[in-house]
Design a binder for these strands. Structure first.
Lengths: 329, 329
DNA sequence: GATTAGCATTCAAGAAAATAGAGTGCTAAA
DNA sequence: TTTAGCACTCTATTTTCTTGAATGCTAATC
């Protein structure tokens, strides 16, 4: 258990380091804590023994450890008020009423990455709340067609399908009508089963080239659930941070950003705003990630803010909270 | 005018530098040119006076200048045969027949960036060859609908539209039917005019909330022509090149890659494969860009390969040519 | 028992000097 | 026209020194 002074000291060191990116010396805190540097050094020693502080070399000042940041975030940090300036920029998103929701998230992401100078990632999934609203097929050539699926939440997916065998326009129309009749209103995650057990048996009776067409639509729908949308904003921001002043580190991060599989792992399941510090992020030991899962009118996904370990956690959280609150409305 | 030996010398220096990224010394070429280093130094001096070679400092070996690369590309370089290995990897794209064309380009881009270790960019435009094939509108809520436009080449665009005033399902249906009747077959770049002069006058007679609906569709179509698709592959590749072993240079390039406006400038209009060396690229003085414009079954755009100035121009061109030839089929 | 002054100690970071070696340019001879 | 030979230039690396900002510890003080 930390004494009041120890907590105060940890707080000062974390906040000073976040600001300056330089190890904090005992002397520099004398004034604030109103005691001598020797006393502070003693306390620092204790915090270091507890694993909350670290040194970069034997005679350097102290730097928060991962555990130190964790303690700060869990026990010390207080929510921060939004500054008028931040507020002002955020307003521009929410006052534009003609923005469709999905655009609003994207726009928020851009603003948040700009305000914080961190990198913002959106991993969007199509929520299972989506129900099929309309299916359409437009023939393009003799052996290809475009299958279009619209959901009640306004999602549109289309797929260009090559047909292995010739199919008549009439057959396509029949199939589409049939599918529409049977699956409108079906939640998107149940469509595959629906197609297989309800549509497949019936389609054979009415449509000649039923195999080909069934397969085409089955593939179109199976794509729907998959590949989450990845959007990033401010990729460069995190690379600009002084702690990443190393070509190989930058290359490593850029490589990870480019790898969809790695980025997809940033996905968050828990509710509320969650903080992952350094190695906790499972993305890169030198970054922290603040994530939150959102469900918003048929869209669902993760919004994540990637910054250095010395992130301004309080401000970032406040900003994210503000955005989430306002998107709800 | 260069002598044979001078051309040979330039060729050797360019190719050696491309391979090693180290200034080339006179001594290292004695064997190949079968003369003394002093002779080579004399010739090098001439090439330097002509601005084809440069030194990094007074007593360093020679490095090709921008003009040197240009001379090499224009006068010396010969097309390169594809290696069996390259060929093999490329085959995988073209043997997959169920790949729709647009996917084939994307896939080619990925392979080409992987084979060359350069960065590949595709700037896709919707060609004006596209003609409207079908328009559809699906109501989502009382005050919003999804407008969908399909072209004869298989392009689909959709837009979520918020209606300022209430509109009935019946009115939407009427409008869509009307638009379909009037504009199917219209080239995409003429749709705006068509809407304004043909549809607008008529729509008023049949549809009550014609203003609102007209505006909605007008906006949906105006989006179509705009925002070209940008796809990138192997962003990290160029950052890995040894000449970019500098954090600020890397940051600069990443920033440019992130800026859609800058990337859009890479667009190519000329036919055939074009080479832009260093400052000619107008993207960054330290890179070269090989670009080609493609028109392919209703899709149109630019495919660009971004590498260091010491690119393997011959190989890159051969690869691009191979891809373009095969996409045509 | 907690605090602090004082002092030896450690280490990074930067400047300065020393060294080695890879190249060049130029001259004079072949 | 070519080349051997040599002085010269510059980079890159290593080494040494110096400075100053920290620390840890001890012993005196509050």
């Amino acid at each position: 258990m930390l004494s009041n002074r120890q907590e105060e000291l940890l707080k000062l060191i974390v906040e000073e380091y976040i600001k300056t990116v330089k190890p904090v010396s005992s002397k520099s805190l004398c004034d604030v804590l109103d005691c001598s540097s020797a006393t502070i050094r003693n306390e620092m020693g204790i915090l270091e023994d507890l694993g909350l502080l670290e040194k970069t070399h034997t005679s350097s000042g102290r730097v928060p450890s991962e555990k130190g940041y964790r303690y700060y975030v869990d026990n010390i940090m207080k929510p921060k008020e939004l500054t008028g300036d931040d507020m002002l920029k955020l307003q521009t998103v929410f006052h534009n009423k003609s923005l469709v929701l999905s655009d609003a998230i994207t726009k928020s992401m851009e603003i948040i990455s700009e305000l914080t100078n961190y990198t913002c990632v959106i991993l969007g999934d199509t929520s299972n709340e989506n129900k099929v609203s309309k299916v359409e097929a437009v023939p393009i050539s003799d052996n290809s067609l475009i299958a279009i699926i619209v959901t009640d939440k306004g999602h549109v997916e289309n797929k260009n399908i090559i047909l292995e065998e010739d199919v008549t326009v009439e057959e396509i129309k029949q199939t589409v009508d049939l599918i529409n009749k049977l699956i409108i209103g079906t939640p998107i995650d149940e469509v595959s089963a629906m197609l297989e057990y309800e549509v497949k048996p019936i389609i054979g009776k009415y449509v000649k080239q039923h195999e080909v067409l069934y397969n085409a639509f089955y593939n179109a729908f199976s794509d729907f659930a998959q590949d989450p949308v990845i959007k990033m904003s401010g990729t460069k921001n995190i690379l600009m941070q002084p702690e990443f002043d190393d070509t190989n580190k930058i290359r490593e991060i850029v490589s990870k950003f480019e790898d969809k599989e790695i980025v997809s792992n940033i996905k968050e399941d828990k509710n509320g705003i969650n903080i992952y510090i350094g190695s906790e992020s499972e993305f890169d030991d030198d970054v922290s990630i603040i994530k939150t899962h959102y469900t918003l009118n048929g869209e669902e996904g993760t919004i994540a803010l990637i910054g250095p370990k010395r992130m301004e956690y309080d401000r970032a959280i406040t900003l994210l909270n503000y955005i989430m609150d306002n998107l709800d409305k």
